[in-house]
Design a protein around this nucleic acid. Structure first.
Length: 479
RNA sequence: CGGGGCGUGGCUCAGCCCGGUUAGAGCGCUGCGUUCGGGACGCAGAGGUCGGCGGUUCAAUUCCGCCCGCCCCGACCA
């Protein structure tokens, strides 16, 4: 609800984002710096994301559980890289019930440690494995610079934690869940992502290997949209997760963890949104179709509203998430803009002319103006809407994919690379040394985003140092 | 934590330099009426410890000091 236009993306992309998040009522700033309130519209979107992921987790054999928010400080310290990675951003509770605590409690920044501790209690035999548990919850990381959804002190996510008898099985699980994320991103959110492996410097603190799905936002910056980690035996050794195998030999388990957070909402906003506001992917949109009645006078009100209610009931019965905007105090034109700001995929206008002709006006959010508007019969509308929703999904995905691909460059030399990452991603051979990675970062602020799983067949020379390189990597500025 | 900016109705801001009557505007909000196929209009209203504390002064939103908070820019991150 606002009468002013959004700052256009071309003028100030991050200002566009900030205004949009608030005006669309996805989230608001909380009284504590860096914390956000997820408003009902934003939370419903998150619930739809949760449902889409949770279904996939269950299908791949996982179960949900809940682990505590507080973790003994000493747990974090058991895994060297882990504590080094997270200690700068920990929130620590030192007083409880008015008394200084004997051991400070960390508000979980992630739950590998406490879950590792529990797994060590639960695992004795190879017959206890694998353990495939997911948790939906919140975590706290004391970030310095925050943005709604993209980086807040507290955020909501899911974290899967699995333990396996063999390395191969754990590695397989890591990639399986990466596939789950990619499938969700592409097929439910219409966000094209690239699956890949993080460099040693970019990987999760404590992991042997981190994998990621990377998405390109409309300002061409990269957003890590979900991660899946192969933790090797690092946490098993730190927390003593041991089992007897078939040969009665004591072995450390192999663990994985994987997470996707409310940050993904930021990915949706910055992948699809336009200068009018949000464009939500149909499968995740809290409201898939909004009906706006057009009332010329009180006389015409009754037949129009009768048609509106009938259409509403039909769409509902067909499983479409539909809302009637029957507010009397604002005009249809206002409502059009209002729902466009909120990203509802389809608008249905029903007025006196439609009652007369047995038609409705359909407007698709992804194609503004006349191009996206059509007049269709009321008969069979549920099917028409379903088809259109599917079509919108496909066109959003195609558009985002085309945008991304047209902003991925293949620089011929280092000078071209520095140019490429100013308005896109550079896809280049890299010798995988931390030195070359650091040089690019220092010169351009771009980091390695991932070494994609799909690689060209040949080999090449490192774009930075010219030495032999096995694999190509994406360099990009990132969120 | 370094550099810059800002705190005045719900929001965006004016007023402050140069202290002095009832502190304003636009938007939003409430009520009534007319409207309604791309951001309607009229009339009548409600709403402010001018971020906090202290100082200067007959008198402080205005001048001074301290504190608090927020935003932007530089070192970390899903």
């Amino acid at each position: 609800m606002s009468d002013e236009k959004l700052t256009p993306r071309s003028v100030d992309f991050s200002e566009w984002y900030n205004q949009l998040v608030q005006r669309a009522e996805l989230a608001d700033y909380a009284p504590v710096r860096g914390c956000m309130v997820v408003r009902p519209y934003g939370w419903t979107l998150w619930e739809n994301i949760q449902a889409a992921l949770d279904r996939r987790f269950k299908e791949t054999g996982h179960v949900n559980a809940a682990f505590p928010l507080f973790i003994p400080m000493s747990f974090l310290e058991k895994e060297k890289e882990h504590v080094e990675g997270f200690s700068p951003e920990l929130a620590v509770v030192t007083v409880g019930g008015g008394e200084k605590l004997e051991e400070p409690l960390v508000v979980r920044p992630t739950s590998e440690t406490i879950i590792g501790y529990m797994y060590s209690k639960w695992v004795q035999s190879y017959r206890d494995l694998p353990i495939l548990i997911n948790q939906w919850g919140n975590v706290v990381r004391w970030e310095l610079r925050t943005r709604l959804f993209l980086r807040t002190l507290e955020f909501y996510w899911q974290e899967g934690h699995t333990a396996h008898a063999t390395e191969a099985e754990a590695r397989e699980e890591t990639l399986r869940m990466l596939d789950v994320y990619a499938d969700f991103a592409i097929n439910d959110a219409a966000v094209p992502v690239i699956k890949g492996v993080k460099s040693q410097t970019e990987k999760f603190a404590g992991a042997v290997m981190s994998t990621t799905i990377e998405a390109m936002m409309q300002d061409t910056r990269a957003l890590q949209s979900g991660t899946s980690h192969f933790l090797g035996q690092n946490f098993a050794k730190a927390f003593d997760i041991k089992f007897l195998d078939e040969n009665n030999t004591l072995q450390y388990a192999w663990t994985t963890s994987w997470g996707l957070s409310t940050r993904f909402i930021g990915a949706i906003i910055m992948t699809h949104g336009d200068d009018q506001g949000l464009i939500l992917p149909p499968k995740l949109a809290p409201i898939q179709a909004v009906i706006v009645p057009i009332l010329k006078s009180d006389l015409e009100s009754a037949p129009v509203m009768e048609a509106v209610r009938r259409v509403e009931a039909e769409l509902k019965a067909a499983g479409i998430r539909v809302k009637v905007d029957d507010r009397a105090e604002v005009t249809p034109g206002f409502k059009f803009n209002d729902w466009e700001l909120r990203g509802v995929p389809i608008r249905i206008e029903i007025g006196p002319k439609d009652v007369e002709k047995g038609s409705v006006a359909l407007a698709r959010r992804d194609k503004p103006g006349r191009e996206g508007k059509s007049f269709v019969p009321q008969a069979g509308l549920a099917e028409t809407v379903k088809t259109l929703l599917a079509d919108i999904h496909a066109s959003l995905l195609a558009r985002a994919t085309a945008f991304r691909d047209s902003h991925i460059f293949d620089p011929k030399d280092y000078a071209e690379l520095t140019e490429a990452v100013q308005n896109g991603w550079a896809y280049s051979y890299w010798c995988e040394s931390a030195e070359c990675e650091a040089k690019v970062k220092e010169d351009t602020k771009a980091t390695t985003r991932c070494i994609p799983l799909d690689q060209p067949s040949g080999k090449g020379k490192c774009i930075v140092c010219g030495k032999d390189a096995e694999r190509k990597v994406y360099f990009a500025k990132a969120y």
